[in-house]
């Protein structure tokens, strides 16, 4: 064997080893979700402990028909909450980003620090902070916000808004102001120029930020665990307490549905703005 072919073989081997290693990382990363979906397909009489059987036995949608009321209510609450939070985060975050990028206020760095502060605070700290704040407000006014939708929305908007500020800022910084000026020169009013030129350009950033906000709220445990009440829990908190107390195999079914929902949302984003926009504007990343 000559030197060149020996080199070639070594190179190929190296490449194969590298790819195998990456494949292992992927298996590590994705296996829990695959296993949850697989386990959810167990039939009513899997041989061992029904909920833990993987690969599934007697494949059926048995458990999908038996998702208890409590979980469905929790899912509905989480959906509504995440939707409200995403909208509010955009309502707060878009003007904030516009102001941060386009104004020349003194102390802009400080203002931007305030907007980004919630990302620096561990969620569990945010949870206890809002709980104590609500206790204080309740003691003063007699109205307690923990265990209400309003309280949950407040806590989640707090952590979700920075994501919108981040994504929209990222898009705005690349925005060519001459586009808007051109519209103004051609006789558009300021509002019309903004609505017809600027807004369409920053929309991908708004979608990306809104998606982050939705996901942050939809997946949160550490804040919601302080702000929910018995009979009024979000889906992740319901799962959290179920694991600590008694375990119901139907959880795997509802969890699988949530995984599929994430996939669908992702596909929608890919169609709407492209995954690369989501990454390029990744406002602080997932938590």
């Amino acid at each position: 064997m000559d030197r060149a072919s020996r080199y070639k073989i070594r190179r190929t081997l190296g490449r194969v080893a590298f790819r195998a290693y990456c494949a292992l990382s992927y298996i590590f990363l994705l296996s829990p979700m695959v296993v949850v979906i697989g386990t959810s397909l167990n039939g009513p009489k899997a041989s061992t402990d029904a909920s833990f059987q993987f690969p599934p036995e007697n494949i059926s949608l048995h458990w999908y028909a038996r998702i208890p009321e409590a979980q469905i209510e929790a899912l509905a609450l989480s959906f509504a909450l995440a939707g409200i939070v995403a909208v509010l985060a955009c309502i707060l975050g878009v003007p904030a980003a516009l102001g941060l990028v386009r104004s020349n206020l003194p102390g802009k760095a400080l203002i931007s620090t305030v907007f980004r502060a919630p990302l620096q605070i561990p969620s569990i700290v945010t949870g206890i902070a809002f709980l104590q704040l609500f206790y204080l407000i309740g003691d003063l006014t007699g109205v307690y916000w923990q265990g209400t939708l309003f309280g949950l929305v407040l806590g989640h908007v707090f952590v979700a808004t920075p994501y919108v500020v981040g994504t929209v800022t990222a898009v705005l910084q690349r925005f060519d102001m001459r586009l808007e000026e051109a519209a103004l020169i051609h006789g558009a009013s300021r509002w019309r120029a903004f609505r017809r030129v600027t807004l369409p350009v920053i929309m991908p950033g708004v979608y990306a930020g809104g998606l982050y906000a939705f996901m942050v709220s939809f997946g949160d445990v550490p804040i919601a665990i302080f702000l929910t009440a018995p009979g009024f829990v979000t889906y992740p908190v319901e799962l959290f307490t179920a694991l600590e107390n008694d375990f119901d195999p139907s959880i795997m079914a509802s969890a699988s549905m949530v995984i599929f929902l994430c996939l669908i949302l992702l596909l929608a984003v890919q169609k709407l703005v492209g995954l690369d926009t989501l990454l390029r504007t990744g406002g602080g990343g997932g938590r």
Binding site: M33, V221, L239, C262, L265, L266, G286
Partner: peptide
């Protein structure tokens, strides 16, 4: 990339359920 993004979006509670089964 989509695989990675899905993994970051799915809440950790669900992944913990999977881990416990594995």
């Amino acid at each position: 990339i989509a695989g990675i993004v899905v993994a970051t979006f799915v809440t950790i509670v669900i992944k913990v359920y999977g881990l416990i089964v594995i």
